[in-house]
Amino acid sequence: MAGFEDLFRTLHSIPGAADNAVKKGVKKGAVIVMGRAKAKLGTYQGAYGSFKAWAKLDPETVRRKHLSKSGSGRITRGGKAYLKKHGSWGGGGNDDAPLVDTGHLRKAITTDHSALESRGIAYVGVSAGSDSRGKGSPSEYAAAHEFGYAAKKIPPRPFLRPALEESRQDIKEEVAKALVHELRRLGK
């Protein structure tokens, strides 16, 4: 009789263990997406699925990125090296470092697991924050680049949605690993 009670208890605990495993897998999957999104910044992205390849930065944007932040209008040491290497602004491909200037956007990409327990959702996105220089928040900057912003002639340079798309299989694998781990733990 004791064997049936143990079996019943084990079978009864499977739904909770499965739910716990899925949440662990989703949490790990969100971290994978976050890492991929951060890695996309600074390198021109090719087409992926329904997402088009990133448009090159305007040469004036590249020039502006290499000006001293002091407001003096002087070209930085990196800017001088860029010009020496490429001969003009906007000719350097990944040396243009698209979506990387100060590093604030990369730092602002984060995960939020607050809805994981109640709704089974983990978010990956850009924290709202604020820019002390009055240029808007990292999330506004991210949205302008993720979807494009015609008023400022910013073409779409999606990094969050492709990161999710590229991570789908890895997320499934993380959930499967967590499920196997939880179910093995029940059998002990």
Results as ranks from 00 to 15, higher is better:
Ala2Gly: 10
Ala2Lys: 15
Glu5Phe: 14
Leu7Trp: 05
Leu7Ile: 03
Thr10Gln: 14
Thr10Leu: 15
Leu11Cys: 10
His12Thr: 13
Gly16Met: 03
Gly16Ala: 14
Ala18Ser: 11
Ala18Asp: 06
Ala21His: 01
Ala21Asn: 02
Val22Met: 15
Lys23Cys: 01
Lys23Ala: 11
Gly25Ala: 04
Gly25Pro: 02
Val26Gln: 00
Lys27Gly: 02
Ile32Asp: 11
Arg36His: 09
Lys38Tyr: 08
Ala39Val: 06
Ala39His: 05
Gly42Arg: 00
Thr43Cys: 06
Tyr44Asp: 01
Gln45Val: 08
Tyr48Ile: 05
Tyr48Asn: 11
Gly49Ser: 14
Phe51Gly: 00
Phe51His: 14
Lys52Ile: 03
Trp54Lys: 08
Leu57Ala: 06
Leu57Tyr: 04
Lys65Asp: 04
Ser68His: 12
Lys69Pro: 08
Gly71Cys: 02
Gly73Trp: 09
Arg74Met: 10
Arg74Thr: 09
Gly78Met: 03
Gly79Ser: 05
Gly79Tyr: 01
Ala81Val: 14
His86Asp: 07
Trp89Tyr: 13
Gly90Thr: 05
Gly91Glu: 14
Gly92Met: 11
Asn94Phe: 12
Asn94His: 13
Leu99Met: 15
Thr102Arg: 06
Leu105Ser: 01
Leu105Tyr: 09
Arg106Asp: 10
Ala108Asp: 08
Ile109Lys: 04
Thr110Ile: 15
Thr110Met: 13
Ile121Trp: 06
Ala122Glu: 03
Tyr123Cys: 05
Tyr123Lys: 14
Tyr123Thr: 13
Val124Gly: 07
Gly125Ala: 09
Val126Arg: 03
Ser127Phe: 12
Ala128Ile: 13
Gly129Pro: 00
Gly129Leu: 00
Gly134Ser: 04
Gly136Gln: 02
Gly136Glu: 00
Tyr141Glu: 04
His145Pro: 02
Gly148Ile: 01
Ala151Pro: 00
Pro155Tyr: 03
Phe159Asp: 02
Leu160Val: 10
Leu160Lys: 05
Arg161His: 10
Ala163His: 05
Leu164Trp: 10
Glu166Arg: 14
Ser167Pro: 04
Arg168Trp: 08
Lys172Glu: 11
Glu173Phe: 04
Glu174Tyr: 00
Ala176Pro: 00
Ala178Val: 01
Leu183Lys: 00
Leu183Met: 13
Leu183Gly: 01
Arg184Gln: 11
Arg185Gln: 11
